[in-house]
Design a protein around this nucleic acid. Structure first.
Lengths: 142, 142
DNA sequence: CTGTATCCGTGGTGATACTG
DNA sequence: CAGTATCACCACGGATACAG
């Protein structure tokens, strides 16, 4: 069993403040809280999964195809984490072969809102970011 | 020189789709774009730094104290990344001891907007998330 | 179909010491 | 004060094989 290591996946052992994922959210200020969500939602696949599930509920392999590039392992892990945080609902139909339907919870849908805002910002500013990078890099190496 | 490794910091070598940070943003759909920003903004410290700088410009060690828990190394790296993306402005005053002032660029400030949205969501839903986790964990181990 | 187990490389993060 | 250099840890993520 590797499970999904439900606790502690920050960088390393956090000696001082321990702003770990496990550390209860309410302990932190607003900044830390945002960081906490970002840690959950900011990983490589979570948002893509949430967005795909936001379109419509999907089964495991449908999701796998929809996301494109995600491995089986990471899809499982991502879904478990989202489920743990109450963002995704998992409904097992114990037929053979088994059928598992994933869908967004109301909480998951509500997250889609601010994420869409962020998405919007990206779309609006991607070129500016990109040119900033080019400028910065050329200034460094040049 | 370790520099700041300006390119490629995703999980691993990305064999198939290569949705790397380096891959030009415009190549991706909205989903990938969000992932890209999240990769940039979703690391452990970036948003906390942005938020602190959003309040007011700060010097290096002021920032260090404001963020609480960040190491010197990570503050430097975070600031460099933000600077590279055009979100943070770095003004050096070559006195002795040296003085370096960091502030948000207009682009950085514009990012603050959607981040505030997300922050708001976190504040509104932190308890629900936390109770979901508790419920999930107790269901697993129990 | 929907996972789980195992192996392993990469790199993000921290600790510490050092520099100008 | 504001970094840089070096070392080490360990979590993330991918590949592959196996299981119910």
């Amino acid at each position: 069993m590797e499970m999904v290591t439900p606790k502690l996946q920050e960088g390393t052992k956090t000696t001082d403040g321990d702003i770990g994922v496990t550390a209860s959210i309410e302990e932190q200020g607003a900044c830390g809280a945002v960081t906490d969500v970002l840690a959950r939602v900011g990983d490589k696949w979570s948002m893509q999964v949430v967005m795909k599930l936001g379109e419509e509920p999907r089964r495991f392999n449908e999701l796998r195809r929809a996301v494109a590039g995600i491995s089986q392992r990471m899809l499982t892990r991502t879904l478990r984490n989202l489920e743990r945080d109450g963002l995704v609902n998992r409904k097992v139909t114990p037929t053979v072969p088994p059928r598992v339907d994933y869908s967004l919870t109301p909480l998951g849908h509500s997250l889609w809102q601010p994420v869409a805002q962020l998405s919007r910002w990206v779309l609006d500013n991607r070129f500016e970011i990109e040119s900033a990078r080019v400028h910065y890099d050329s200034r460094e190496e040049g």
